[in-house]
């Protein structure tokens, strides 16, 4: 079995395990490459028929290509889409200019909080990976959040022999991370192998491309001529810059990611 096949089979196992334990589940689809791969794996796990909703947390600052891609594949893959927005915060005029920490926390974390309490989800699938950030490297495949969304990173559950934390107390929910063990290059090699469509922003245009996408205002492009998947894979093999170096929320201060995540950020 190839390395990619091992990753795929393990991820499908985790996806099915979470669904067997928590029926009230949903997945977060940021429309980026990772969560699009996760969506692909979920379709495989359930034989083409996803038995739960797909949530897009919409800050309203996303690239227009992201919205176009979303609307196209919602139809094509027959997805039950929920768009989560923190309308109040948007109305109050929260923007990245007034502080990226607050903006991410309000428009992403708090938007998600509202949706979870509205629908009563007890588990959420997310496409985070260990190699993205040192804080994410410490995650579990099944990671509990309390009612305030707090991540108790100092006391994480035991995770051994494919036995996961599969019980949620009142108002608690579990974050399910089926792609935790994938690297950026694995994601691209899998996209190539499976011919998965991804947003065009990842491909170089006029010498620039995005390596990680999110809100238009908080993503920097990188200099690159990689305009095909194969060229992206080649580029990654020699790159000395980290994947999320273009993402503002990772850099604001040394522990921003830890603070954001301990409050419930992805």
């Amino acid at each position: 079995m190839s390395y990619l096949e091992k990753l795929e089979n393990q991820s499908i196992y985790i996806i099915r395990e979470a669904y067997a334990q928590f029926k009230k589940v949903a997945m977060l689809w940021s429309i980026g490459k990772d969560s699009t791969v996760l969506l692909w794996l979920i379709r495989k796990a359930f034989f083409g028929k996803i038995p739960f909703p797909v949530i897009h947390i919409d800050t309203s600052f996303k690239f227009k290509e992201i919205y176009e891609f979303r609307d196209k594949y919602v139809k094509e893959w027959n997805l039950n889409l929920i768009v989560a927005e923190n309308k109040e915060a948007l109305y109050q005029g929260i923007t990245p200019d007034k502080g990226k920490f607050e903006c991410c926390n309000e428009l992403k974390t708090n938007a998600l909080k509202k949706i979870i309490s509205e629908y009563g989800f007890s588990a959420l699938y997310l496409a985070i990976r260990r190699d993205e950030h040192g804080i994410r490297a410490k995650e579990r495949n099944f990671s509990p959040r309390d009612k305030n969304f707090k991540w108790n990173y100092k006391n994480q559950p035991l995770e051994v022999w494919n036995q996961y934390k599969t019980w949620a107390n009142n108002n608690e929910h579990l974050r399910i991370h089926p792609l935790l063990g994938w690297r950026e290059i694995d994601v691209w090699e899998y996209i190539k192998k499976e011919r998965i469509s991804v947003v065009s922003l990842y491909f170089a245009k006029n010498g620039q491309r995005y390596r990680s996408i999110g809100c238009e205002c908080c993503c920097d492009s990188i200099a690159s001529d990689a305009n095909t998947i194969s060229k992206i894979i080649r580029e990654l093999k020699t790159s000395k810059i980290s994947e999320r170096s273009g993402r503002a929320q990772d850099k604001e201060d040394d522990y921003t990611m830890q603070k954001l995540r301990s409050l419930g950020y992805m």
């Binding site: 260990r130 190699d131 950030h133 040192g134 804080i135 490297a137 410490k138 990173y153 100092k154 994480q156 063990g181 690297r183 040394d254 522990y255 830890q258």
Partner: peptide, 20 residues
């Protein structure tokens, strides 16, 4: 490896990490 603020300040490893 030790990315948590508490780990760096206390010079200890609290939780397991995986790197590639």
């Amino acid at each position: 490896l030790d990315h948590l603020k508490e780990e760096r300040e206390g010079d200890i490893t609290i939780d397991t990490t995986q790197v590639f």
